[in-house]
Every structure is written in structure tokens, then in C-alpha cells.
Simulated assay, not measured.
Amino acid sequence: MASISLKNVQKRWGKTVGVKDFNLEIADQEFLVLLGPSGCGKTTTMRMIAGLEDITQGEVMIGDRVVNNLEPKDRDIAMVFQSYGLYPTMTVYDNIRFPLKIRGEDKAAAHERVMRAAAMVELEPFLDRKPAALSGGQRQRVALARAIVREPTVFLMDEPLSNLDAKLRVSTRAQIKNLQHELKTTTIYVTHDQIEAMTMADRIVVMSQGEIQQVGTPEEVYNHPNNTFVAAFIGSPAMNLTDGTLEGGVFTNSHIRLPGLPAVIEGPVTLGYRAEDANLVEQGGHLNGPIFSTELLGDATMVTCKVGDQLLSVKTDKDFRAPIGQPMSASLDLATCHLFDATTGERLTGR
């Protein structure tokens, strides 16, 4: 097993910067998720760890070895991609066994490892099939088994669930998380899906434009976002953000007045709150406006109202019903509100 260290890692293509000053320590057996929008540098970072992308500057260590100049095959890693990369003419069994065949592993020992890997991802009934006879979820499990059978020190997974439907994504992410717990293998998982990150990660690295925005547990990045980018990217729905002025601990804009906040600054700020931290009231709340839409989520109802020119969300009881256009009022719990610098977007205060 192995820890991973990235020190001042950069990737540039001429004047274009893909990853900038990336510093991170990944613990042995940790499940780390690189999260961010397309083009943020998360896949490039993982490819540099894998050796599939040259490092412009900096150092990557796996265990106690600097691996900058090592070939991918010499880094003792296994990768699972968005595309399954299966050999169409081979059976499931042969696809899983292929890495061991290339290594020249003993046939009996290889068979035992193939069967063990197939059992872990529940593929035993499908070992004689070709990939064309499998569903998308089954093909992804073959790709997982092929990575598992190598018994690497590090798993690298690049958006492995993107091609699956919603129901399969839920079951497969649970399977991956459980597998990682059983195998106790250091895992780096790349995704743009914040729900995957929140449900699977030990720690999340939120990235934007090639830079780390925040590193923390799912609870930390959700409850204590470093800036407005993280606040808006993490959560479903995203944190409500509205600009205004803070004077003497009173936040105001043309549609909201919210007294009793910490007087951390005088002047322009951005107020943030989560939909579940607001409550619908009969009247006299902090937010007032007509209902723009309602969405039944099953265990709750998401109510979006139009406050001035902004759409702001409130999560309420699953039995809530009201027509679009009906006036709505909502109160905020001051203890759960966040304040961000209006210019830099950096966090000023919050729970």
C-alpha cells in the first residue's frame, strides 16, 4: 500500500496552464476525490500521477519513490476509465485475466485471482460472455475486476460512472466504495458530479481553473466552503448566494434585510445559505417573493421563489403544496448563514 505526495506540481502547454502549484498529501488507503467542472485540471492531475502526462514542474511520489520519470507500467497503479476499454473478442474471464497473462503469471494462481476479483463485483455468472452481451453496468464491473486483479498499490478512476444510468450509478458507487474499503487500496477518483464526491470520498479536493479551491472531508466542504465557488459547486441545490451590504451586522439589499449577523466587515458582501436552512413562514420573513416553481423530491419539497431578480431555494416538508405565483415568505437561521467577500469571494464567516 502507498501514500501519494504531490509537491508544487504544474502542467503547462506553452502559455496555457492546466494545473498550477498543486500540493497535496494523500494518505495510505485513503479514498480521495478530485472534483470540479470540465477543464479544471482534475483529469490532467490524475494522468500526471499515472505517468500518462508529463509533469512540467514539481514532484510526484508514490510511497517513498519519486515517480516523475517512471513509465506507467512501473508505478504499480491500475486505472479505470469512463470508457470501459474491454477487448470485444475476449470473454469476461479473459478480459479480467489479461493483465496477469501479460505479466506471465502462473495459470493456476491467475485463475484464483480472476475468480476472487469476479466474486467481488458479482460477475461469476457472466464469465463466459463477450462484452457485447453485457449491460453498461456489467461492463464497468469487468473493468473494475480487471483493475482489482492486478492488486496495485494505487487505484486511479477517471469518471468511471459517467456512462451509466442514474439507478446504476447509485448501486455502482456503493460497490466501488465498499470494494475500496475491503481492498484497503489508496484510491484517487475523478468526477464532476458532486453527489458522487460527497457520498464516496474520505476527502474531496475541489478544483477550478487548475488550482485547488479547498481540501476537506465532505462535511467540511459542505458546511464550511472556503469561497463562493465551492459554496455554489457543492450541494444539490447549490448554496443560495445573494449580494448586498453589511453595516453594523445588518445585511441589506433591495429585497432583503437581515440583522444580527457578525460585524466582520463594513461594506459589500455576499450572503450564503443552504436551502434546508431556511423555513417557510406565514409572513414577515427575511425573504419575500412569489413562488417560481415547486419540486417534489420524495422526502422533501424544493420551493424556488423569485426574490427581486434572483431565484432562491427553500427545502420544506414533502406535503407542501402551493401554486406558482403565490406569495411566499421565508426566514433564515442566522447561525447557518455564511458571509463571503463580495470582491474575492473568500469566506468571511459562517457556521
Rank of each mutant, 00 (worst) to 15 (best):
residue 24 L to K: 15
residue 246 L to Y: 02
residue 318 K to Y: 10
residue 194 Q to C: 02
residue 53 E to M: 05
residue 295 E to D: 14
residue 143 A to Y: 09
residue 125 P to E: 07
residue 164 L to Q: 09
residue 119 A to E: 15
residue 183 L to G: 04
residue 206 V to Y: 04
residue 73 K to C: 05
residue 300 A to Q: 14
residue 243 D to W: 03
residue 66 V to R: 13
residue 95 N to H: 05
residue 341 D to M: 11
residue 258 L to G: 06
residue 50 A to R: 10
residue 95 N to A: 06
residue 143 A to M: 07
residue 54 D to A: 14
residue 169 R to I: 06
residue 203 R to S: 03
residue 59 E to S: 12
residue 278 A to G: 02
residue 173 R to W: 04
residue 203 R to T: 01
residue 216 G to S: 04
residue 269 V to L: 04
residue 247 E to C: 09
residue 148 I to Y: 00
residue 259 P to N: 09
residue 272 G to T: 00
residue 103 R to I: 02
residue 212 I to R: 09
residue 344 T to K: 11
residue 204 I to C: 03
residue 10 Q to N: 15
residue 303 V to P: 15
residue 290 P to E: 14
residue 126 F to I: 03
residue 118 A to K: 00
residue 164 L to C: 07
residue 59 E to I: 10
residue 83 S to P: 01
residue 130 K to A: 10
residue 155 F to A: 01
residue 220 E to H: 07
residue 152 P to I: 00
residue 319 D to G: 15
residue 169 R to V: 05
residue 315 K to N: 13
residue 159 E to V: 07
residue 302 M to A: 14
residue 17 V to P: 04
residue 63 G to P: 15
residue 26 I to M: 11
residue 236 S to Q: 13
residue 169 R to E: 02
residue 122 E to W: 08
residue 240 N to P: 01
residue 182 E to W: 02
residue 170 V to E: 14
residue 134 L to I: 11
residue 137 G to C: 05
residue 37 P to V: 06
residue 91 T to W: 12
residue 6 L to P: 07
residue 7 K to E: 15
residue 285 G to H: 07
residue 150 R to V: 00
residue 324 I to R: 15
residue 227 N to H: 02
residue 167 K to L: 08
residue 131 P to E: 01
residue 182 E to C: 01
residue 329 S to W: 11
residue 80 V to Q: 12
residue 280 L to R: 13
residue 76 D to H: 09
residue 45 T to I: 03
residue 242 T to G: 03
residue 41 G to K: 13
residue 316 T to F: 06
residue 135 S to K: 13
residue 255 H to M: 10
residue 225 P to N: 10
residue 137 G to R: 09
residue 257 R to P: 06
residue 267 G to K: 05
residue 272 G to N: 00
residue 253 N to C: 08
residue 242 T to M: 12
residue 66 V to Q: 12
residue 180 Q to C: 05
residue 57 Q to I: 08
residue 213 Q to T: 04
residue 30 E to S: 10
residue 256 I to C: 04
residue 99 P to M: 05
residue 283 Q to I: 07
residue 345 G to T: 01
residue 74 D to Q: 13
residue 253 N to G: 07
residue 253 N to P: 02
residue 73 K to Y: 10
residue 190 V to S: 06
residue 303 V to A: 12
residue 81 F to G: 11
residue 176 I to S: 07
residue 273 Y to M: 02
residue 138 Q to N: 05
residue 31 F to R: 08
residue 56 T to Y: 06
residue 37 P to K: 10
residue 152 P to R: 00
residue 231 A to M: 00
residue 197 A to I: 01
residue 63 G to M: 12
residue 96 I to Q: 03
residue 66 V to K: 13
residue 244 G to T: 03
residue 270 T to E: 00
residue 46 M to W: 10
residue 266 E to T: 15
residue 238 A to E: 00
residue 60 V to A: 07
residue 12 R to F: 08
residue 136 G to M: 05
residue 98 F to C: 02
residue 4 I to T: 10
residue 249 G to A: 01
residue 158 D to M: 12
residue 116 R to W: 00
residue 270 T to K: 03
residue 221 V to P: 10
residue 230 V to W: 09
residue 260 G to I: 02
residue 327 P to G: 02
residue 117 A to I: 05
residue 42 K to G: 09
residue 334 L to A: 14
residue 88 P to M: 03
residue 227 N to R: 07
residue 336 T to S: 14
residue 209 Q to N: 15
residue 208 S to Y: 14
residue 202 D to S: 08
residue 11 K to N: 07
residue 107 K to W: 01
residue 186 T to F: 11
residue 250 V to N: 11
residue 36 G to P: 03
residue 89 T to Q: 14
residue 61 M to H: 14
residue 125 P to L: 08
